[in-house]
Design a protein around this nucleic acid. Structure first.
Length: 468
RNA sequence: GGUGGGUUGGCCGAGAGGCGAGGCAACGGACUGCAAAUCCGUUUACACGGGUUCAAAUCCCGUACCCACCUCCA
């Protein structure tokens, strides 16, 4: 079965049909860097990271472009508030985003352009749109440039709305607009805005509107037609609708498939900067291991709302612990080996609109089988199961033995020291057990447990691991 | 007012006309000096009211409730 994906635009599951056979080009909207990323933002990164890993595993060459919107009203306001340049605010949050990518094991995009880096391309695009009669400079001399919604009959096609049914944006001053629904391609410079937040154009100095940058970046780095455009469902309208209208009106076919991930809710409402109910990635990873957070975010289907709770996060950590326990036990017995091929049922689930929950059910079945092989002492069989399990985990970015997660380098020396100490205690415990002095044996185990070390008795002797 | 999505067992979470996804928790059993880990087994499902069908969690109609978008948002 070829890879299939739900397309938001046509509202159906469609086979991926790349513009260039063998290659997949993906654009997804990154962050507007007004603040550090919360776990809703990073859910999107994990979703697209899993998509990328699966397509690459399927033998496709993947290009991913994800933008960083480094200028907008709120960034300017924050700079003003904090008494420092707007670009310092944007850059700080961009670095926080990169740190979150890394801590959750997300492979960086192929390229990550900034909005302020494509101003010439935006100007070109506006000129094209004006020539074609789909955009106009504001008639009030403000320097704003608007897209003329009425000039583009298919406006609303992505979100399934008709222009006449849409509410007029009441908070946007309609002065220079021909229609209240027209949206800004470019915002004229206002007195009081920093000079550094403006660029010269044929219509005066100003700065990018929100939507145009994505059209300009996608065209520059992926071409006028590309395969998948992604982002959070909350961007479908107006952002993606507007991108689609701009690019098509400028004569570009644009994205073939639109892929939107559902939101992550907290207490029944979408986690968002404006609601204020956010949990920062940097905070959550203090309570739960990053790999467990990644498992939690990846385990639900990307089109299902995730209702965040501490309980379900803890449950996910336990569930992942079972998988990881098998991997570590099997690796200790049979050697780590390398991630192997994935079972056909796993591949079928992933090909079916990235059905990670079904794929995980396959993975967990193999873990159960592998555990049975370990219990039976079948080293060769356990090694084969390990290769399959690691292959599946690798696709999800969750292989505990991968260099991403097994950061042995930094603390390998410390581990050796701890190992020597723990092994000494385990030998004492074993001696006590042999002498049937169970009080002493249990005291040693309790001492280790209190220090945060789990003891596991196996047919090959006791093993220790740091609790997590 | 317009446009989408949802409501599944104690909990999380798939499925989308017949065959009990999976996980967590609980309980029982095996293993263990006792545990832990592991394996085996057990229990409680498809919001409500109608309808279609040999057969409905799944399709249709209605009702209730929830979420998202139409304003900045992943």
């Amino acid at each position: 079965m070829p890879f299939q994906l739900y397309d938001t635009a046509s509202r159906q599951i469609r086979a991926l049909d790349p513009v260039v056979p063998g290659r997949v080009s993906i654009y997804h909207c990154g962050l507007t860097v007004q603040g550090p990323p919360h776990i809703g933002h990073i859910r999107k990164e994990v979703v697209f990271d899993v998509l990328r890993r699966w397509l690459e595993r399927s033998g496709l060459e993947v290009s991913i472009v994800a933008n960083v919107t480094d200028i907008d009203d709120k960034i300017l306001a924050k700079g003003d508030e904090q008494g420092r340049p707007w670009f310092a605010v944007a850059y700080e949050n961009e670095r926080a985003l990169h740190a979150a990518y890394e801590v959750l094991g997300c492979i960086p995009p192929t390229y990550e352009p900034r909005a302020t880096g494509v101003v010439p391309e935006m100007i070109e695009m506006m000129q094209t749109l004006i020539e074609r009669g789909h955009a106009y400079a504001a008639e009030d001399g403000s320097g704003d440039v608007y897209f003329d919604v009425r000039s583009w009959p298919s406006y609303g096609e992505l979100s399934g709305q008709r222009v006449d049914d849409m509410l007029n944006a009441e908070d946007a001053p309609p002065e220079g607009k021909r229609d209240g629904r027209d949206f800004a391609l470019w915002k004229g410079h206002k007195d009081g805005d920093p000079e550094s937040a403006s660029w010269p154009t044929p219509w005066g100095r100003g700065r990018p509107g929100w939507h145009l940058e994505c059209s300009a970046m996608a065209a520059k780095y992926l071409g006028h037609e590309f395969d998948i455009h992604g982002g959070g469902l909350d961007l479908r309208f107006p952002h993606h609708e507007n991108e689609l209208a701009q690019s098509r009106a400028a004569g570009q076919p644009f994205a073939r498939v639109w892929m939107h991930n559902a939101m992550l809710n907290l207490a029944g409402a979408k986690m968002s900067k404006s609601v204020g109910n956010t949990l920062m990635v940097s905070e959550v990873v203090k309570r739960v291991r990053p790999i467990a957070l990644r498992y939690y975010l990846a385990a639900s289907h990307y089109r299902s709302i995730v209702e965040f709770s501490e309980e379900s996060l803890a449950e996910a950590a336990t569930a992942f612990g079972r998988i990881e326990g098998f991997v570590r036990r099997a690796a200790a017995l049979a050697g780590p080996g390398e991630p192997g091929d994935v079972p056909a049922e796993f591949a079928a689930a992933m090909d079916d609109d990235l059905s990670v929950p079904a794929a995980l059910a396959v993975l967990q079945g193999h873990v159960t089988d592998g555990n049975s092989l370990l219990t039976a002492g079948d080293t060769a069989g356990a090694g084969e199961a390990l290769a399959r399990v690691r292959g599946m985990l690798d696709v999800l970015g969750l292989d505990p033995l991968s260099p991403t997660w097994d950061r042995g380098g930094d603390d390998a020396a410390q581990v050796q020291v701890i190992d020597a100490l723990v092994e000494g205690l385990l030998e004492q415990r074993q001696a006590a057990r042999a002498a049937k002095d169970f009080a002493t044996a249990d005291r040693v185990r309790d001492q280790l447990t209190a220090a945060g070390i789990d003891i596991e008795d196996t047919p090959q002797g006791a093993r220790w691991s740091v609790k997590g």
